[in-house]
């Protein structure tokens, strides 16, 4: 029962973690703009948190470089299962205009698995909200397929929706 409550409430009110890889700030400020009164993502029960251990959805902006890929992997590892990753902006999708630069590895999907791609340079807040809601759909499906023991979720037989 405890498991069901946890699962239900995580779906009802997912918590966001935002990490800026080498973004130009354009997408970051749009992510923050989503939290403010005009766009107000909190009406979907979504809260921005700073701790990866509390987060359900990871928002990543910007292209990955050699140094922050370690940080990104670390954050992703710390997040509890199931988790959804949303890549925001052209740079997070493919590296964008920076893909030829020497210190850029490429899009987020070169490092971790991405569930939703939100294009745009910079991605508009409407698009970001839309992407988060798409991610939420996936999160719902994943939640139903995960079975947890003692508060720790472990992978079920079919882990893909």
């Amino acid at each position: 029962m405890f498991e069901q409550i946890t699962r239900g409430s995580r779906v009802k009110s997912p918590w966001l973690l935002h990490y800026d890889c080498s973004s130009c700030n354009g997408c970051d400020i749009e992510v923050i703009a989503c939290l403010t009164p005009v766009y107000d993502i909190e009406r979907f029960g979504i809260i921005n948190v700073g701790n990866p251990l509390h987060a359900d959805i990871l928002l990543v902006t910007g292209a990955v470089n050699h140094r922050n890929r370690k940080v990104l992997e670390n954050l992703y590892e710390q997040m509890p299962h199931p988790r959804v990753v949303i890549a925001i902006g052209s740079c997070a999708l493919s590296g964008g205009v920076f893909r030829e630069a020497y210190n850029v590895v490429g899009g987020v999907d070169k490092v971790i698995a991405v569930d939703v791609y939100v294009p745009g340079c910079a991605a508009k807040p409407e698009a970001i909200i839309d992407g988060v809601l798409l991610g939420l759909e996936k999160f719902k499906k994943l939640s139903n397929n995960w079975r947890g023991v003692g508060g720790i979720f472990r992978e079920a037989e079919t882990n893909e929706s």
Partner: peptide, 26 residues
């Protein structure tokens, strides 16, 4: 954590296209 190496892109984009690159410095 954010270093991309933008200045080096001057070798692959001509001076008109660099306008779009420098816009994305920030």
């Amino acid at each position: 954590y954010v270093h991309r190496g933008l200045e080096k892109l001057a070798g692959t984009r001509d001076f008109h296209q660099m306008v779009q690159i420098v816009e994305r410095v920030c």
